[in-house]
Each structure stands twice: as structure tokens, then as C-alpha cells.
Write a protein that binds this DNA or RNA. Structure first.
Lengths: 201, 201
DNA sequence: ACGGACTGAATGAATGATCATTCATTCAGC
DNA sequence: GCTGAATGAATGATCATTCATTCAGTCCGT
């Protein structure tokens, strides 16, 4: 028994993706509960048993899905060059890129955004998953320290920064998902205006 | 055995409260799923069948619990007199009362705060519940309009205001629940500083 | 080229648990 | 004895998970 339940490398990689995509769709539509493995398999076009060739359990699948979605968001988020272009180091424009990209992802990827919220609130995430997530955040932290050092951002504890930057995005998405309002570009701009006042020197 | 002299005619009101309290405890600890009705009944010290004398279904119970918790939060929140005390209408101090009270509730009522997040993300809330929640918010809206009229707050769409006011609180609570950090008074003060910049004229 | 083991991915009916919900029955107070 | 709250075993569904079996390739000896 030298094996491990962790990485499932050999079998078709596309199939793993298909399972995760199917699970994401169903969980976003019906909730973490009410998304039975049988339905996930059907949605992915495979048999139930096959899912268990790729993930040792439903819980493990969901944790993997959570990290997968987070990674997608972060790579989408950091595709934008923060201020690479050059001449005028316009702090507000750079912050707009950062913030608007984050907001756009959450608004455009309703399913992924909802999955993140569901996983975080439901206590299904393992310590391992949480630790991995923190290690992902660590990289973003560096950019933040740098921005502060260059005087582009007010100095504050990183948790405060994150709360002021991402908190309003989460709140907007939550209101939209509750059907309370549409999030127009106008609302985004006005919210960003507040975020700027909070974060810029 | 000796019960209260006042005979509560219909089903005991205290029992309803006991059921909601038990459900809150279990759902916060184990998640919306993994909180079976049998466990809720046991935690409340009654039989399973009895729960169904007070709620027609588990879903209805959870919706009722959600509104119950929201009402508790809102009444806690609006117990503080906004600026009644006296002379100088200090906008910042008034905002601090409002914001800090909201933040304190979410930090001190971990179970309730988590329940709100779980319910909102899981799609278990009925249209009726959502509508009722919106009608609760309508009352707070009046205070906001008033504050803007008196020049205590910058003018902005109400969704933007809420995102900038409550979003950072949700984010802080989320980070605390994930075990990433403790939320000290220092962090609260610094976050509030950002919120002020965002909201005050 | 050919056939006949061999391999391991894929299958899905079967299993064993766990739930939400019901209802025949009990029981306390009037 | 009557009323209706309270009970909790029983019911019927729904799941997550398993595993005996299928099947499409691959390899090798001839």
C-alpha cells in the first residue's frame, strides 16, 4: 500500500476537468447539498464510479474544486500588469486595474464566485485547503508591500487592506445574487471611488 | 415541573425559540447539511415530531431562523441612539457608532453571522424570505437618506453605501472564521478609518 | 499478421447509511 | 372523559461509496 489517495495523475486529465466543471455548475445551481455525486457524474457524461477514480470522496472533490476556482480567479486577476507600462505611476489607475479586475471576475463568474462563498461558509474546507489558500495569498502580499513602499497605498495591516479592497466586492456580488439590484458600471465606479479614498494616501 | 403561571395557549412560544436556538448552534457548528432534524430536536430537548408542530419543514425552519437572526442583529444594531446625546453633530463619531456596532455584532455572534452567510450562499432562502429581508432594510434606508440630507454622508447609491459600510465587516469576519487572524480593536479602528474616508464628505 | 492473455480505465447496480417527514399512540391538564 | 400538545418508531427517499464485471487497448509468441 505505497499508494496515496491524493494526486490522481494517470487517468485522463480532461476528465478531471470535466468533473470539476460539472460539479461547479450543479453546486452553484442547487447548493452544496442537493448536488449528488450521481448528478455530477451524469452532468460530466461519465459513470458515478468513475468520479471516484479521480477523487477519493465528495468532500475531497469539493476541496479540489474550491482551490481550482481560486486559482482560476487569481490567475485571471494577476494577468493584468499592475503598473508595468511606465511613465506616470498613477496610483489610482493602477488600483483601478487591480480592483476592477477582481470585481469583474466575481461578477462575470457567478458560479465560481458563489462556490467560493458556499465553501467558505459551510465549514467543508479542510485545514489543508485553507493552508494552501493562504500560501496563494502570500504572493499577492508581496505586491502589496511593494505598493506601500513606493507610496502608492496607505500603510495598514494586510487584513485591513483586504477587507477594504475585497469586502465591497463581496457585498456587491451578494446583493446581486440576492436579486436586489443589478451591478452597473456606474455602481462599480462609485464603489471604486470609495475604495480609493479608503486606500490611497 | 412547575411551569410559568401564564398558560401559553397555542404551542409554547419558548419552545419555538428553543428549536431555533438549537438549530442555530448545530448549523453553525456542522453546516446546513449535517444538521439533521433529529439532532436539532435532541439539542432542543424535545422529540423530532414536535419540531414539525412549529415548522412545516426543515427549509421553512431555516428560513425562519434566518429572519430571526437578522431581526436580532438589526435590533441590536439600532439600539444605539445614532447621535442623540447632544451638541456637536460629529459625523465621524456617529458613523463609528453605526459601524462599530455592526462589526461588534458580527464578531461577537459568530454563530448568527455564520448562519447568515451560509443561508445567503446556499440558495435555501425563499423569495418570501428575501422580500421580507428587503422590507427590513427599507427602514434603515430612511436613516441613510436623512444622514445624506444633513450632509453627514457623501451621496451615493444605497447599494454602494452598503457595500462600503458592511463589505469590510463581512470580509474581516470571513478571515477570522477561516482562522487567518484575530480581529483586534486595532484592526477595527484602522478598518473604520478606511470606511470613514470612503463615506464621509 | 494473428490470437490470446494481460492491463487498467470505466461502468452502474447494489449496499449500507442517513435523512426528512409522518402518524398512531401517549399523556397532562381541564 | 376530552382536547390537543408531544412523542418517537416506522416509512420512504436519497445519498455516498463500493466492487464485480465489461471492454478497449497493448504486448508477445508464434
Amino acid at each position: 500500500m505505497a499508494e496515496t489517495a491524493t494526486a490522481t495523475a494517470k487517468p485522463n486529465l480532461d476528465k478531471r476537468e470535466a468533473i470539476l466543471a460539472a460539479a461547479l455548475r450543479l453546486i452553484a445551481r442547487f447548493g452544496l447539498h442537493n448536488a449528488p455525486m450521481s448528478a455530477v457524474a451524469r452532468e460530466a457524461g461519465i459513470a458515478v464510479g468513475t468520479v471516484y477514480l479521480y477523487f477519493p470522496s465528495k468532500e475531497a472533490m469539493i476541496n479540489a474544486l474550491y482551490l481550482h476556482v481560486l486559482e482560476e480567479r487569481n490567475s485571471f486577476w494577476r494577468r493584468e500588469p499592475p503598473a508595468a507600462t511606465d511613465s506616470p505611476p498613477d496610483a489610482r489607475a493602477a488600483l483601478w486595474e487591480t480592483w476592477h479586475t477582481l470585481a469583474r471576475w466575481h461578477l462575470e463568474h457567478e458560479e465560481g464566485s458563489n462556490l467560493i462563498a458556499q465553501c467558505r461558509a459551510s465549514g467543508i474546507l479542510s485545514d489543508e485547503t485553507r493552508a494552501f489558500e493562504q500560501s496563494m495569498d502570500a504572493r499577492a502580499l508581496v505586491l502589496y508591500e511593494q505598493a506601500v513602499a513606493e507610496g502608492h497605498l496607505r500603510s495598514m495591516p494586510r487584513y485591513v487592506l483586504w477587507a477594504l479592497l475585497a469586502g465591497p466586492v463581496y457585498a456587491l456580488v451578494q446583493m446581486r445574487d440576492a436579486g436586489e439590484t443589478e451591478i452597473t458600471e456606474e455602481i462599480l465606479r462609485e464603489t471604486f471611488d470609495g475604495v480609493c479614498r479608503a486606500l490611497l494616501p
